[in-house]
Amino acid sequence: MATGGRRGAAAAPLLVAVAALLLGAAGHLYPGEVCPGMDIRNNLTRLHELENCSVIEGHLQILLMFKTRPEDFRDLSFPKLIMITDYLLLFRVYGLESLKDLFPNLTVIRGSRLFFNYALVIFEMVHLKELGLYNLMNITRGSVRIEKNNELCYLATIDWSRILDSVEDNYIVLNKDDNEECGDICPGTAKGKTNCPATVINGQFVERCWTHSHCQKVCPTICKSHGCTAEGLCCHSECLGNCSQPDDPTKCVACRNFYLDGRCVETCPPPYYHFQDWRCVNFSFCQDLHHKCKNSRRQGCHQYVIHNNKCIPECPSGYTMNSSNLLCTPCLGPCPKVCHLLEGEKTIDSVTSAQELRGCTVINGSLIINIRGGNNLAAELEANLGLIEEISGYLKIRRSYALVSLSFFRKLRLIRGETLEIGNYSFYALDNQNLRQLWDWSKHNLTITQGKLFFHYNPKLCLSEIHKMEEVSGTKGRQERNDIALKTNGDQASCENELLKFSYIRTSFDKI
């Protein structure tokens, strides 16, 4: 039985969820670079991206490699990797027998973001014989899940209580170790020597080791999670996991709180800001991140802002960003909400898709409305799209047979046209069989910064309504002859009103 693990408890099935942008060198404390989270699957090609990484700022997932063999891993080693800020997950990587050479110096898994409450997941690794993470000293947050690894031993010899604050939620089941077939031998045991430290858990006094050649490092209890030197002297209180010299914040392997210019500090002093819960960055760093993602459509890219001495992905609820200094300031009234469309555009074809934009005031991208039916549609669209004030790209209304009016965009005031449909149009209306009105132009103002209007096959939309939009939106004169079809717009509506004058002759039985 794995020490510190839980057996036999019912657990939810383990679901495996399925960018080499360097964020800056980590400095003297770390020998390499800070790398983003990685999802490495199918083959070993991307694994080489770990070569210079000291910190993975995010998670590391290595999974679904069915053609790899043990010899493929023999020359692979990433000794610079010290810390993973989120979680480490391995799933069905064939041929991998140990992690001792792959990650010989991995010391800390912070667990800032977890995989279903777990910071370390080893699942269905069919050839893994031992973990071998002999320098792993601290899992700051989260638990361990090690399950269905039929060859995995050296679990009962690990004292997880020396690595985690609590072992109650560890789930370590259905491994070879369960069948008591392992016969784990710690260093020196074969020669009758006791080389590794022994600890007591559940009444068992057991030597602690990761492999037959690597003991588990056990520091004096007084050192807590700070770690200790090879001689057993406690590291500085700002260290986490390990250090090369005692009581020196510049000799830590990793930091308990924050890293700044080669030393570990309790908090980031001005003019620095907390970033990702582990390091200090200056304003320029946060500003660069903001600008890199301002026009990016890459998933996970955030326009970072500053709030409460932190550089964070977005302002919290009730705050909006001051564009001059990136500071989050309290909103006066309802907060603006910028919604970034991942692929640059979004099609609204149902109430469900409209709900995804609920509360958005600025759309960074283009909207395509293609709704053919739905219950209580006008009210639903207004509830979900009615706060949109600005669209950076274009607005396209296409084959939306259920629409009679666009009044559900009740606050839309600006279409920038930074991206144009077919390279020309910022407003595009095609084949809307029941569209009769755009907006009530006596109450609604709309500016279209650039781009043209396109109207074709809107049989109940009168040309007068379209011409009014040209005047109000500032697009009059931009359109070419064929942009607004004269014969297919309003051709099934009563669009022309003329005053009919009647004269009559009164007659009676005795007068003409």
Rank of each mutant, 00 (worst) to 15 (best):
C182V: 04
G132R: 01
W160A: 01
P187D: 11
T157K: 08
C53M: 00
T250Q: 07
T194I: 14
N149M: 01
C53D: 00
G37H: 04
R141K: 05
M125K: 00
I201F: 14
V55R: 01
D165Q: 09
C234L: 01
E180P: 07
D261E: 03
W210L: 05
I82N: 03
S284K: 05
H214T: 09
T68Y: 06
N149R: 00
F115K: 03
G318F: 13
V305D: 03
I158C: 03
N105L: 02
S98L: 00
S213K: 11
P79Q: 12
H291E: 15
I172E: 03
W210V: 13
L128T: 03
C311A: 05
A254D: 01
F73T: 14
C35W: 00
S98T: 11
N42W: 14
L76A: 14
S225M: 10
S161Y: 14
P197G: 02
S98N: 06
I84T: 00
I82P: 00
L233N: 14
K224M: 07
G111D: 00
T189S: 07
R297E: 13
E314H: 02
V218F: 09
S77T: 06
T320W: 08
V55M: 13
N170L: 10
E238N: 15
N322F: 10
E180Q: 11
E124H: 13
Q204D: 13
I139R: 01
M83Y: 06
S54Q: 11
P79N: 06
K129R: 06
L240D: 06
C35S: 00
K148R: 15
E207K: 15
C255D: 00
V121D: 00
E71N: 15
Q276D: 15
K217S: 12
L164Y: 14
I201C: 14
E207Y: 04
L90I: 06
L332I: 09
H226M: 14
P246V: 08
C235N: 01
H236F: 01
N52V: 11
H226C: 15
S161F: 06
K224P: 09
S323P: 14
P313V: 03
N105R: 04
N179F: 09
L120N: 00
Q299Y: 04
Q303W: 05
D247W: 15
E231P: 14
V34Q: 03
E51I: 06
C196S: 07
T107L: 06
C219H: 04
Q276F: 14
E147D: 08
N257W: 03
S225K: 12
H307F: 08
V218Y: 06
A198P: 10
D277L: 07
L96C: 13
G188Q: 11
P313S: 08
M38N: 06
R298Y: 11
P70M: 10
S161E: 10
P270R: 08
W160S: 01
E181P: 03
F78C: 01
S77A: 05
K294Y: 01
N195K: 10
N105D: 03
Y304H: 05
P334S: 08
P336I: 10
I222Q: 08
Q299M: 10
C293S: 04
S213W: 04
K193V: 04
R141S: 10
I306T: 05
C53W: 00
F78A: 08
N135C: 08
H307A: 06
N170C: 05
F275G: 03
Y171M: 10
I56Y: 00
C153P: 00
I139C: 04
C328K: 01
V144K: 00
N138I: 04
T85N: 05
F91R: 05
S54K: 04
F116G: 09
R256A: 04
V121W: 01
P249I: 05
H48K: 15
N170D: 09
C228I: 02
G241Q: 05
V93K: 00
C235G: 00
E231F: 15
L240K: 04
D159S: 11
C255Q: 00
I122C: 09
I139P: 01
F73L: 09
G192E: 02
N117F: 11
I201Q: 09
G188D: 06
Q61Y: 01
N242C: 10
I40G: 01
D277I: 05
S237D: 13
Y304L: 07
G188H: 13
I56F: 00
S225R: 08
T250K: 07
L332Q: 11
C209K: 06
E147F: 05
L174S: 08
I56H: 02
D72G: 15
P187E: 04
D184K: 03
H214K: 02
R74G: 02
S237M: 05
G232Q: 08
N105E: 12
H127N: 04
H48Q: 14
C286I: 07
L44E: 08
I82D: 06
H212R: 11
L102C: 03
T85W: 04
V34I: 02
V108Y: 02
H28M: 03
F103P: 00
I82Q: 06
P187N: 06
L29M: 11
T267L: 03
S77D: 04
D261L: 10
P36M: 15
Y273A: 10
I185F: 14
H214Q: 15
G262F: 12
P270V: 06
L99G: 02
I146A: 04
K224E: 12
G37N: 15
C209E: 02
R162Q: 14
V265R: 14
Q245P: 04
D39T: 04
L260T: 13
G188R: 06
H214R: 04
R298I: 05
H59N: 06
H59T: 02
E147Q: 08
D288T: 08
S296E: 13
W210Y: 04
E57G: 06
P36K: 09
W278V: 05
L131R: 01
S237Y: 12
K310C: 05
P330W: 07
L64Q: 02
N135I: 00
F116V: 09
H28C: 15
M65G: 05
I158A: 05
L50P: 00
N295S: 08
C311E: 01
G241F: 02
P271S: 11
T267I: 01
D288Y: 10
R263G: 13
S225I: 13
Q276Y: 06
S317T: 11
T250M: 07
R256K: 08
L106D: 00
Y134N: 04
N175A: 13
G300F: 09
L88M: 05
T320Q: 04
S237F: 08
G333S: 13
N308Q: 12
E57T: 06
R298C: 13
R74D: 06
V144W: 00
C255V: 00
L164K: 13
T68P: 06
H302P: 10
P334D: 04
C209P: 02
Q299I: 14
H226Y: 03
P104R: 01
C234I: 02
C293M: 00
R208K: 09
L120A: 05
N150V: 09
Y272P: 00
P270D: 08
L233Y: 15
C335G: 02
R263L: 11
E130T: 06
S324E: 10
R256H: 08
L64R: 07
N322L: 13
D277F: 04
C215L: 05
D261F: 04
Y259R: 12
F205T: 07
V55I: 12
N42G: 14
L99E: 00
P70C: 07
L327S: 03
C315R: 07
G37Y: 15
C315S: 03
K67N: 04
Y134L: 09
S143G: 09
I109E: 00
H59P: 12
E57C: 05
N309W: 09
Y304E: 04
Q303H: 12
N170S: 07
E181H: 15
K217M: 03
C239L: 00
P31I: 02
L289P: 06
S166R: 07
G58A: 01
K310L: 11
S317P: 03
G241E: 03
P316V: 06
R113F: 08
R110L: 09
N295Y: 09
S324D: 10
H214V: 13
H127F: 08
D288P: 02
N135L: 02
C182Y: 13
P36E: 04
C293V: 07
L155D: 04
Y87E: 00
P249L: 04
M321E: 02
F258K: 14
G318V: 03
D248V: 06
T85V: 08
L233K: 09
N117R: 06
N150R: 07
C153I: 01
L63M: 11
A230Q: 14
N308F: 08
V34S: 06
K100T: 09
L326N: 13
Q287N: 06
L164I: 09
T329I: 08
S213D: 15
Y304T: 15
E168S: 15
C280D: 00
C239I: 00
N150D: 04
T107P: 00
T157N: 06
R279T: 12
M38C: 02
F285C: 03
V55Q: 01
H290D: 08
R41H: 00
L120V: 12
T229S: 11
I62A: 01
H212P: 10
P313Q: 15
